[in-house]
Amino acid sequence: MKRIALVTAWLILLASCNYIDIPDILFSPSSVNERFKQSQQWNESHPTQIITTSNESYIIMTMADSHVGTTINLTHFLTDAQNRSALAVVINGDFCTGHAKDYELFDTTIKQYTTLPIFTTVGNHELYFDGWNEYFTRYNSASYYFSVQTPTQKDLFICLDSGSGTLGKKQLAWLQALLKNNRANYRNCLVFTHVNLFRIRRTGSTNPTIEELHILLDLFAKHNVNMVITGHDHEKYSEQLGNTTYLSVDALKDGLPNAGYLLLEIDNSIRYHFLSIAQ
């Protein structure tokens, strides 16, 4: 009872602070299948991005849950990525609150890093306050893939929209076809999506249903996906299931004592490092 009362009080407080949109946490304002359709329409008229590098080894950096607002940690992360000559950055959902002004602030911040290829995907917070339209207008697609071409190898990076707690049937069918038809052409395959897949610790954060999780795990195992990277839970974990590594990153939100992000060193193997803002 105490826990229910605390959660209720917490929700009322967040809603009164304009941090979450109560109707939207109960029912998604946009259909994941409709969002995927819009993403695909954009993908079809734009070529898949291929990043080329002259090195066999390279760095990709990723973060989630900056919840802009404010941009102190986001700026720290992007500056660090630029200083380390990261080949690309993946922003794995919940980068803002969903309010148009926060989208604008986030957009202004990332546009200062003109040499850094930045890829985004959508989290639940981007969808609040009718945020999907803002997302789509600015970033065009939430379900897509890009690749990195080294002198001898190609690696595949897949970004998925799990902002509504499910990939939806259209996106899942697309993912199945993508892995079946293309996985063999790439050395490494990494998947980025916002919602954490497992409930490793006691947490109130939403996971996909166990039925969807079963299918995703089977798909990732069958197609030898190397790594699946998520956020949403605000606390990092690293787990291994079969040959696939499952990571979740700390939230990057300003003011959190554990705020952090992830650095990936990629060549014939993938090494990951959780980096803390406090360090």
């Binding site: 994941v32 639940n124 509504s164 919602v195 109130g204 039925e211």
Partner: peptide
């Protein structure tokens, strides 16, 4: 009726 999550998601119908 199955829901794809509760409360802290932007929750979608699941099945």
């Amino acid at each position: 009726y199955k829901s794809a999550g509760a409360l802290n998601g932007s929750v979608h119908y699941y099945g």
